[in-house]
Nucleic acid binder design. Sequence first.
DNA 1: TCTTGTTTGTTCAGCCATTGAACTTATAGG
DNA 2: CCTATAAGTTCAATGGCTGAACAAACAAGA
Lengths: 403, 403
Amino acid sequence: MPARPPRRDDPVRQRSLRDHNLALVLRQVTSAPRPPSRADIAAATGLTRATVSTIVDELIAGGLVAELRPVSRSGVGRPGTGIVPAGTGPAGLGMEVNVDYLAVCAVDLAGAVRHRELRHLDQRERTPAQTWRALAGLADRTAAAVGALGLVPAGAVMAVPGLIEGGTIRVAPNLGWQGVALPAAADFPALHGLDLGAGNEATLAALGERHATGLDSFLYVSGEIGVGGGIVLDGELFGGSHGWAGEIGHVTIDPQGPPCHCGARGCLEQYAGEEAIRAAAGLSADGDRPVLAGLADGARAGRAPVLAALDRAGTALGVALSGAVNLLDIATVVLGGHYAELIDWLRPALERELSRRVLTAAWSPVEVRPSALGADAAMIGAARAVIQGILDDPARFLATRTP
Amino acid sequence: MPARPPRRDDPVRQRSLRDHNLALVLRQVTSAPRPPSRADIAAATGLTRATVSTIVDELIAGGLVAELRPVSRSGVGRPGTGIVPAGTGPAGLGMEVNVDYLAVCAVDLAGAVRHRELRHLDQRERTPAQTWRALAGLADRTAAAVGALGLVPAGAVMAVPGLIEGGTIRVAPNLGWQGVALPAAADFPALHGLDLGAGNEATLAALGERHATGLDSFLYVSGEIGVGGGIVLDGELFGGSHGWAGEIGHVTIDPQGPPCHCGARGCLEQYAGEEAIRAAAGLSADGDRPVLAGLADGARAGRAPVLAALDRAGTALGVALSGAVNLLDIATVVLGGHYAELIDWLRPALERELSRRVLTAAWSPVEVRPSALGADAAMIGAARAVIQGILDDPARFLATRTP
DNA sequence: TCTTGTTTGTTCAGCCATTGAACTTATAGG
DNA sequence: CCTATAAGTTCAATGGCTGAACAAACAAGA
């Protein structure tokens, strides 16, 4: 999705040395709590002030960072000039295809969302081609808005609730899609000449959370119609052999449990998926009222069947997550999607199972926290993936800019 | 355990450039199928012949590689001189503390086991201090034998069947140890001045398998008295936040299953641990005859209770591994410990569950294979960890060599 | 107001690792 | 014996980092 990062088996020349340090400095600028001066960057990275100066100059020339104009600092000595991510630099476009809506947003180098477009549309009633057309419209408007802000779109990534392999969507159960080819950048007028990537919705949401929270390693679990997940290790998304990692929704809770549409029995989704919770809570399936609102209201009102259903879901989540934590030794779990709103009623059962089943819970308890981005996580994460590609290898971006 | 590899956030100077290429060339030499010439290395790495020459010279001077004397090649042109890992270079010492034996081995740069020592001793009847003393004796003899071969011990790693944190063994259930301090290098006369590390047995076994098989990403599961595991991703051991990753033995198979000594219910170990299989097979617990042999013989003889017990264990393994594969998207599972010998009877149930429960099994089936190293995996993996430290950062090794 | 001390940012010579091209060495084949 | 080919070495050039000196900007005190 983002272009290949520099690998361990690559030879290192002088140039790659500069490339690495460019990335190092840029990362420092985008991740520092306050705009650092060149001297701050030098201290933080271990490079000399001289080197940092030349690197910052290169980044400024490339439009990736900018100097802060007025400078006032506490303490004696010449005050430093703060360096900030360029407000008018590249923008990452994040696009989301979901069951009942399409959305596009633009994120700048600092990670701020600068624009968003949303359109309610039920994909189940439409062909993929129709979806792409509608999405292209949103992308057009986003690109225009972003251009008006002085930003330049630098690429796009699309979040899809399904399994992606190569250039096709293998299967997206909730959209009813199978073997659908991903659109080419050419299908999106706003993106001519740019890279267009795609990734799993929950996986990209995890990436979004990673940057919103600053957490380094965590497990992200998202409850929607399905149950998806993403794994972040050492600050990087873990994709697995094919990019399919994180599919926690089909971890077995009870081998003899209820049959799942995936063909197995007792999958987590059958206990903690939206449909399963709704049925267990005794809420009706049809009606315009969203299931989530019904559950949250019912829980707040203290309705026993709703509380019992959420306890059951929390227990199942706890069993699945305990296994994942035992396997991965990860200290934090982030609950996203609908789970974020239901966390207060899921948490007791979930934490009970975690403390009981995680082998090392006694010495190092697992923290459970709600998503920081809520429903936007996937879209923002997709946009972040583009930005991440630039942060990881600014030299490549600069090369395409000024040939 | 192995010293810190160069990190993404480190500044890169001229020197680190050389360091990286030193590692690149050394890796090429140790992993090539046949001794490569300088020109081969240049072609494989992308460096120029000139650079490779100076780097190889540095490695030869440091005693890490050597030139092959006689040189004959097919084809015209000046024949190249093959470069091989030094047969008289550093050796990694791998030590294993197990319930009923202690073992030490030495592995050279090429990954070959050059010496081994084994002593049957039941740790449950002994204090940790007694164990360290006995182990130090084996280490002494190994170091002496290795010295006679012209090798120089470069460090040691100890494999322990338990959870390790910082300098202590948090808990090693099967040894009956809790909060036992790891020995210092000073307690091992043979290791004066060397690094002495420690790691989990199954985790290190996974590392051993990684190098024995060349597999890049896989899940290693070891069946002993407990059930342990290790995760290898992209050629590197994945440790998790505290180095405790891989504890698949306590993944839940059935939330209402039999109680486990860990305090939870229905852990994999209660279905696929040695004791659980034995009980299900109706074999007697005591007697000098090892449980494993009884199971294998019974299975070969077609005894129904034994076959049923192994089927049950295989099913449970399949459920646990399916969850792990769904989560991690890993294409290969390696069965080690006792499982390696029982694989023929575990496999049918195991693969049935995998194909049923792994979401992507239809497109990309999971391969299940037996361990290549068998019972020695942990010890060899521990020794390999030392070698790996040198391969990952030969410059540091060279610096300690010639100050 | 002027001086002193402190910190930031720049300049420049020196160093170091890689490159690329020329050169030497070693072999096969005619 | 000569030619073609490939391996390995030598060396000037290049690019990037360092360290030290220096200029710039500010606070504090006299």
